[in-house]
């Protein structure tokens, strides 16, 4: 299988666990925590994407040796 795809799947899986645990931590009610899970996961992915974009930008500008 494509290596990038495997890493993306592993990232998605670990993200889901991190978001689930944070949802449980911040919301005592199980049903509310589970309802908020998809939205939280989406925000987590968007945050990670933004961070990745910033890192790539920094790599190609500040850290660029070309």
């Amino acid at each position: 299988m494509n290596d990038l795809l495997v890493h993306a799947l592993l990232f998605a899986l670990l993200s889901a666990v991190i978001v689930l645990m944070s949802a449980f931590y911040s919301e005592p009610d199980d049903s509310k925590a589970l309802r908020a899970f998809p939205r939280r996961l989406l925000f987590f992915f968007l945050g990670c994407a933004a961070l990745t974009g910033l890192m790539l930008l920094a790599e190609h500008t500040v850290a660029s040796v070309a």
Binding site: V6, L10, L14, V17, I18, M21, F24, Y25
Partner: peptide, 30 residues
């Protein structure tokens, strides 16, 4: 091949369990 990914999975799971421990403490205290 996925040694580092596995390492991160196991270590993150352990640290997330600290959140679970805080959760049960808060629930019991409340």
């Amino acid at each position: 091949p996925y040694g580092e990914a596995g390492l991160v999975f196991a270590a993150v799971a352990g640290m997330l369990n600290i959140l679970a421990m805080l959760d049960v403490y808060g629930f019991a205290a409340r």
